[in-house]
Design a protein around this nucleic acid. Structure first.
Lengths: 191, 191
DNA sequence: GCACAAGTGGACAGTGGTGTCCATTTACGG
DNA sequence: CCGTAAATGGACACCACTGTCCACTTGTGC
């Protein structure tokens, strides 16, 4: 899972560059055209041949994992930064949505059934990452006590759905904010 | 829009039967395999050739519209039945979700951008259908007063997303109920 | 610089879905 | 019954995407 740099003979610099370019291109293209975009487009955007893409990532989900991995590291850092903050949970939720707006890869990766092998590990990390903040938010009375991990994944999927078909990034942000507001407050008026 | 039975020369009975079989098959297949299923599968299920399918419905969305039309009629009947009930809104919401569980065609049809021509009319009917019950629910204090039509479509999309990847119809129902509960009450505890 | 392996990308065949065409079948009116 | 036109469905050509192969190019250690 973290055996990158020490046991295999070091890769050529250009090869490593291409790999990074591919991940960056994938993030962009997924954001523009959704997760089901043809892989051709990603290779073209990265300025490499198809073969290079397939050599680095056997399929679409491997690419998704790479992006997901990257995002997850950022979220874990954020969680550590808010280690004692009862508002960490909602901050993480916002960050996750923002990532979804930027890449469109996270949620399909999160939800896809048993399609993906290592993807399951990433999903577990995501759940583990949220467990602490969720518990703290519940203890502080900020989040309903009956909310469980599966609910949180569902909530993420739900807000993503509200965002999906928006025409622009700005529109996506607006809709995400509204959806999060409705989700937190509920449709039934308070007091 | 409702010029079916009087101006064109009456169609042959078998042709009409086939058309109905196709719609029924489409509803089943969409429910089992999602809206993006190959049209072959629908023709096979209906026991007709591909050409017959294409003659009746130029594309996937025409099929979606036909199902949608049918569902919408049922919802309009339901709305009339609850014409004075302040709980009509939530009843309609539940019914819509239930339809989505049963067909998977409604929400993609509702959301798809400018892809579809007559589909826009159906979406408008849906919004109009919900407007009255929404206003009544708001007047009764059952639904937050700032909720607008666009929000309602978003809410429908959100709950559908929570349901999408469930392995069975029973699981879908369970998840739909939970999502609706979270949506109505909100994630933040009450009182 | 040079040799050599790592890496590349265009070309290629395979696959699955779409939409159309036409010889044959089937319902309907007389 | 029979003639006719509507209707059918399998065959066909088409297209987009996938995944692999191999002759060539490019970094890297000496």
């Amino acid at each position: 899972m973290a055996a990158d740099a020490h046991d295999s003979p070091p890769r050529r610099r250009d090869a490593q560059d291409n790999r990074e370019r591919l991940v960056a291109a994938a993030r962009e293209v997924f954001a523009e055209s959704g997760f089901e975009v043809p892989l051709d487009a990603i290779a073209r955007r990265a300025g490499v041949g198809r073969a290079t893409l397939y050599r680095n990532f056997p399929d679409r989900y491997a690419l998704g994992s790479a992006i997901f991995e990257h995002n997850l590291a950022a979220l874990e850092a954020l969680a550590r930064a808010h280690a004692r903050d009862p508002a960490a949970f909602t901050a993480l939720l916002s960050a996750i949505i923002e990532q979804q707006i930027a890449s469109h890869a996270l949620v399909p990766a999160l939800l896809s059934g048993p399609t993906a092998p290592d993807l399951h590990a990433l999903r577990s990390r995501m759940i583990r990452l949220l467990a602490g903040p969720l518990r703290r938010a519940q203890a502080a009375g900020a989040i309903r006590p009956d909310l469980v991990s599966a609910d949180v994944l569902a909530v993420i999927a739900m807000i993503s759905a509200a965002v999906l078909h928006a025409p622009s990034v700005a529109a996506r942000r607006r809709r995400a904010a509204r959806a999060l507001q409705l989700m937190l407050d509920g449709l039934v008026p308070r007091t």
